[in-house]
Lab assay of single mutants.
Amino acid sequence: NQASVVANQLIPINTALALVMMRSEVVTPVGIPAEDIPRLVSMQVNRAVPLGTTLMPDMVKGYA
């Protein structure tokens, strides 16, 4: 199964993503693939992302 990017902490709106904020986990539904974690670093989220939430492409500015 494909691992997705999951929030490792609460990520406030407009926060630039850092490695420590993300982990990979096999979840349903599938979100952003875990292999894209390096690409996500320094991109901003466009909403608050609670701990344990799967990151979806529409949550990250400039990802989709």
Results as ranks from 00 to 15, higher is better:
7 A>V: 08
56 M>E: 09
3 A>L: 14
23 R>C: 06
55 L>F: 10
56 M>N: 05
42 S>V: 03
63 Y>S: 03
23 R>L: 05
15 T>H: 07
50 P>D: 09
16 A>H: 13
43 M>L: 15
47 R>S: 09
61 K>D: 12
4 S>H: 02
6 V>W: 02
36 D>C: 05
51 L>S: 14
58 D>A: 13
39 R>K: 14
34 A>I: 08
54 T>R: 03
63 Y>A: 03
39 R>A: 09
38 P>F: 11
9 Q>G: 05
57 P>A: 15
17 L>Y: 00
7 A>W: 02
42 S>T: 09
40 L>R: 01
35 E>K: 11
40 L>I: 10
13 I>P: 10
23 R>F: 05
5 V>H: 02
23 R>G: 07
13 I>T: 14
15 T>Y: 07
18 A>P: 01
62 G>D: 12
52 G>V: 02
1 N>A: 14
4 S>I: 02
47 R>A: 09
11 I>C: 03
13 I>Y: 11
7 A>T: 13
10 L>Q: 11
14 N>K: 07
38 P>R: 10
63 Y>W: 13
46 N>Q: 10
26 V>S: 10
59 M>C: 04
37 I>E: 01
61 K>V: 13
53 T>C: 06
54 T>Q: 03
8 N>S: 12
23 R>I: 07
30 V>W: 10
51 L>P: 15
36 D>V: 08
46 N>D: 10
52 G>L: 04
15 T>Q: 11
4 S>N: 00
49 V>M: 05
43 M>D: 02
22 M>V: 08
23 R>P: 02
44 Q>W: 09
45 V>M: 05
17 L>E: 00
39 R>M: 11
44 Q>T: 15
48 A>G: 07
32 I>E: 00
1 N>C: 06
11 I>Y: 00
61 K>Y: 15
31 G>P: 00
51 L>W: 12
9 Q>N: 07
38 P>C: 04
63 Y>P: 03
10 L>G: 08
11 I>S: 00
12 P>S: 11
61 K>W: 09
1 N>W: 11
39 R>N: 12
61 K>T: 14
31 G>N: 00
56 M>P: 01
59 M>Y: 13
2 Q>A: 10
49 V>D: 03
16 A>N: 12
61 K>S: 15
54 T>N: 03
38 P>L: 12
57 P>L: 05
18 A>F: 06
37 I>A: 09
14 N>H: 08
19 L>T: 10
47 R>P: 03
48 A>E: 13
33 P>R: 09
13 I>W: 08
16 A>G: 10
27 V>E: 01
8 N>F: 04
7 A>E: 02
19 L>D: 08
10 L>M: 11
51 L>D: 13
16 A>D: 09
